[in-house]
Computed example of a mutant assay.
Amino acid sequence: MKPKLFYFLLWMIGLNNTNAQIGNLFTVSNIKYKVLTQNNTTNIGTVEVAGDYENYAYAGNPKLSLPATVISDGITYAVTHIGKNAFKESFSGSGNNVLTHVDLSRATNLTSIGSKAFEKCIKITSIHFPNNLTSIGVNTFRDCSSLTSISFPNSLTRIGNGAFQYCTSLISADISHTKVTNIGQNTFSGCSSLTSVIFPNSLTNIGSVAFMNCSSLTSVTFPNVLTSIGRSAFQNCSSLTSADLSLTKVASIGRGAFRYSALTSVTFPSSLTNIGRLAFESCLALTSVRFSSSLPRIESDAFYGCTALLNVSAKVPEPNITTLRKKVFLSVKPY
């Protein structure tokens, strides 16, 4: 046999061993899996929980628990992902098929949960994540309206936009031990029972509408490395009474960021360069704002309707303080 032909046949055998089953589906304990990688020589591979969610066959157990590995046809597969839409609306009805608990703590190879994987599973009350999880996708737990508690792992680096939007029974969110750097758009918006959130020291950005309509939110501690707060991030947080940003590196506060909140005082950092339009509109209880050494750009109507605002202080010399006060008070009730 010619050498080139021999090596070609070896390459074909290796290709068949590693790729022949990729994309195939199989079922173990009523859970459907999709093969991501496979090596028939070593008999190992990886799978994700399949994204085919309609009439998903997981009957008779209200608690979902996934293993670290599954075996099919002599191959041991590590369960590394939960696919897009995997359990979406699968357990939103009544009877034996109603999912109430998600315990993923045994799935120690799981690193990511895909978009909308548990969206509208309206009876889920608790979630336990594995220690190696790094990513939660877009809208993953959106509209899980019975969810009351979440335990986030230290390994987590990403929470997708809208991941917990409209989780109206969620009481607290402690992200402090994670490595998350960004809270994206709509991540916790509409969580009307959320009373407290604890951010990690790694957080640099709070995105647009991230906590909008969290009407029970009373306290927020902002990390020192935070640089920006997005549009309407805390709009309609009608129980939020204070925002101390003095130790942060926030440079920009977006349009409507604290609009219609219950703030009584705000302390700004020296890094602040811009306060967006309507950022503090109709904060009717706001009586004082304190600036540091900077003179930020204050866009029109930034404090519009803050009729109780009487005290504006800053660590700047005259006449800068006079100019600053004029900017603030003009925005309360524009001419």
Rank of each mutant, 00 (worst) to 15 (best):
P153S: 08
K4S: 12
S252A: 11
S193Y: 09
T322C: 00
I229R: 05
I198A: 13
I171Q: 10
K327W: 10
M212W: 10
F129Y: 01
L10H: 07
K4Y: 03
T273K: 12
K116A: 01
T140M: 11
T273S: 15
I122T: 15
C144V: 01
C283R: 02
I75V: 09
S246L: 04
S232C: 06
L25D: 11
F87D: 09
I124G: 03
S265D: 09
L25N: 15
K327Q: 12
V266E: 01
I298S: 10
G184Y: 08
Y53Q: 13
S271Y: 07
R255T: 15
A210S: 09
S135A: 10
Y53F: 14
T125N: 02
T37W: 09
T241H: 05
Q21R: 08
E318Y: 03
V28T: 00
S176H: 06
S288C: 06
N132H: 10
L203I: 11
N16P: 03
N16K: 08
C306Y: 00
F129E: 00
I175A: 06
I175S: 10
A86F: 01
F329C: 11
S313A: 05
A279E: 02
V225W: 05
I206T: 12
A78D: 14
L99Q: 04
E89K: 12
R290H: 12
L324D: 01
F188W: 09
E89Q: 02
T148K: 12
N24E: 12
L36G: 12
S294L: 00
A233Y: 15
C121S: 02
N201Q: 07
V49S: 00
N97K: 00
Y58C: 01
F141Q: 00
T46A: 11
T227Y: 03
F291P: 15
Y335I: 15
P3N: 09
T140A: 14
S228F: 10
A233W: 13
M212C: 14
S215I: 04
A117H: 02
N274M: 01
V312L: 07
L286D: 02
I253R: 04
F152E: 04
L147R: 01
L263P: 09
F118R: 04
V47G: 02
L110H: 14
W11D: 11
G23S: 04
N154Q: 06
P223K: 15
L278A: 08
F211S: 03
R325T: 07
Y58T: 00
Y335Q: 14
V266D: 04
T37L: 10
C283H: 02
V220W: 13
F258K: 11
L110Y: 14
T37N: 15
P153W: 05
P67F: 05
N30V: 03
S90A: 12
F303S: 02
A257F: 02
E318G: 02
S202E: 13
G114K: 15
I122G: 07
I44F: 15
S72I: 03
A107V: 00
F152D: 02
I122L: 09
G190Q: 15
Q185M: 12
L170M: 14
I253M: 01
T69H: 05
N213Q: 09
A262H: 09
A279I: 05
T111F: 07
I206M: 12
N96E: 05
K116S: 04
A68H: 05
F199H: 10
S246H: 07
T108W: 06
S292N: 06
N139A: 05
I122A: 07
T108M: 05
E89N: 00
